[in-house]
């Protein structure tokens, strides 16, 4: 039996069925991401001063990924338009461009951005020990400038064994520029281009540390929500890419030859999903990278 209303419109809805289906699905997706975004808002509102990090992500890379996702949204809609105009060749190329954009986006996230975070270290200092590390934190300078208090020392952990070995009593950290030169006014606000870790080493005693981890979800509410939301978003990108690959392969050319409008409608529906994924990223990018 053939599936009804894949191309012709159903009289009572005025739409072909998949269109209704994808919008119902997107409605449920809005609730899924809505729940996560409301968790983000709540965690952020609730974070004590100094406990919501700022400027830890790579803004140029994030901007590039945003541009790639926007570009792929354009190419997918052009792919659909090409099918509507019955230009299969053009469709094939636009679809390939969309797939490549999706793959680049995921590669940047999984091969570059995430592993860089896993490789970075942060130690929250106990409130009573903050004075002892004033040379790295510059809290007097921060207070004078009305900046949030600095509670964490970040950088590259030289003795990784210290994370698990209770016999090692201190962390040796190659400091991030902010902690290397905390009273420098240039460090008051994050930079567009991230500054590299300095070769200045600080020794932080474990008994002065409240919590010390790599930049993993366990690091803070910020990184927990960052990895959860970008992870779920990344899975959506992956899903979209897989569907697009199917629509780009020769199997779909057979459908095109049989009923071109059916393939056009399939692309439109997958495109709606893809635009939705782009739309989520439009909010994720400023919330995590910029603000």
């Amino acid at each position: 039996m053939e599936i009804p209303y894949t191309v012709s419109t159903r009289p009572d809805t005025g739409l072909w069925n998949a269109k209704v289906g994808i919008w119902l699905f997107l409605a449920s997706e809005v609730m899924l991401f809505g729940g996560l975004f409301s968790a983000y808002i709540f965690l952020r509102l609730d974070a004590p001063p100094g406990m919501w990090p700022h400027g830890l992500l790579n803004v140029p890379v994030g901007t590039m990924n945003t541009a790639i996702l926007i570009l792929s949204s354009v190419t997918v809609v052009l792919a659909w338009a090409a099918l509507k105009m019955r230009r299969y060749r053009a469709y094939w190329w636009y679809m390939l461009a969309t797939i490549l954009c999706g793959v680049i986006f995921l590669t940047v996230k999984l091969v570059y951005e995430w592993p860089q975070k896993f490789d970075h270290f942060g130690a929250y200092i106990k409130p009573e020990a903050l004075g002892k590390y004033e040379q790295y934190l510059g809290n007097k300078h921060a207070a004078a400038k009305d900046l949030p208090p600095r509670l964490e020392i970040t950088g590259h952990l030289h003795n990784r064994a210290a994370l698990n070995d209770p016999k090692i009593k201190e962390y040796e950290v190659a400091l991030d520029p902010l902690n290397a030169d905390p009273t420098n006014p240039a460090m008051d606000r994050p930079h567009f281009f991230p500054l590299p870790v300095t070769d200045k080493i600080a020794k932080i005693e474990k008994e002065d540390v409240q919590r010390a981890t790599m930049f993993l979800p366990t690091h803070s509410a910020y990184f927990a929500s960052y990895f959860t939301i970008t992870g779920l978003h990344g899975m959506h990108v992956l899903g979209g890419v897989l569907v697009f690959i199917y629509m780009w392969l020769p199997v779909s050319k057979k459908l095109y030859q049989r009923n071109p409008e059916h393939l056009a409608n399939r692309v439109e529906v997958a495109g709606l999903f893809w635009h939705f994924v782009d739309l989520i990223w439009i909010f994720v990018f400023p919330l995590f990278y910029l603000l």
Partner: peptide, 29 residues
Amino acid sequence: FMHLAAEKRLIYRILIFTGFFVLGLFWLI
């Protein structure tokens, strides 16, 4: 891109419900 500027009524109806529930979700915060 998602053609919502000119879409059929049923889609808008679905979205009105979605808007209502997602605003409710944020209101819970």
